[in-house]
Amino acid sequence: MELVDKIIKGERAAIAKAITLVESSKDSDQQISRQMISELIKKPGKSIRVGFSGPPGVGKSTFIESFGSYLVSQNYKLGILAIDPSSQITGGSILGDKTRMVEISKNPNTFIRSTPSRGTLGGISMGTREASIILDAAGYDFIFIETVGVGQSEIVASNLVDIFTLIVGPGSGDELQGIKKGITEYADIFIVNKNDGELKMEASKTAADYKSALSYYKKLDELEKQVLLVSAIEQTGMEDVIKTINQIIDQNKLKGIFDERRADQLEYWIEEEVKHIIASDITKRLISKGNIPKYSKKVMKNEMSMYEAVETITNDTLKQ
């Protein structure tokens, strides 16, 4: 496939077009996309995929600008997939993430793609996993996946990455209640941003709160969760972040956790794809049979109960 060769050569326009294909809702695009991904998967790169999430307003994009600048200054190639949480009350989205990534967006060693979330579960869009495969094949050392931290997003996002990072702000200690067990299982690193100016004290205190709370939730066989203090504006703490990421990756590789995770993720991916195909197939059948309007009328007329209608429709739809 010509497109595959161009991606592997790292041609910017080809990478961009390929991401459009994997995000497309058109059937013909999806077919090409599957073929392309199958070929790309055979030629994996060596990227480390890092997830960044956190509540709105903690400075995620600013942190990525700052941390990304540090990485490119160390000659790493960096791909960023930013899932823009912009409102979808109205038709389209305004993708403004890049206005906060001024410096790295100029750098020739970066590739930055914003995608509107469209209200999908956890803000992860269709095609994010495939997009990271494309960037991996294109030779990017790090792939950042940035999502806004609402509800289930961390869990979905953590299924796409090798290491998952939660960014929080000073004074978010109160939110520890909300973190509870769930997130500690998914996040590997906690980054307390805004460790600068008037907020410095508060940031240190928050980091300490996280540390003690996390040790409480720690399972016996688990690595200790890392809590780091950074200032995106003052660009401090960035070496610690990359050092910690590399340490965790090395340890995970050594213990086999790295491959185990990727295997789990593959399993999850297959499951999702199968579910998706079955669901869309059955939905098509369901709609073409026209049973829902037919039976809901019967329910309205009290000819059958709602649950009877559901059972009848389900049986009829699943019947070959």
Binding site: G92, L95, K98, R113
Partner: peptide, 30 residues
């Protein structure tokens, strides 16, 4: 904002971009 309200997906570039930066941004986001 008005294009987005009509249904376009709109990328906002930062201020003070050079034409080269704009080209990179446009192509990466296809």
């Amino acid at each position: 904002t008005s294009f987005a309200d009509m249904g376009f997906d709109v990328d906002m570039g930062p201020l003070f971009q050079s034409p080269k930066d704009v080209a990179k941004d446009a192509i990466e986001n296809d």
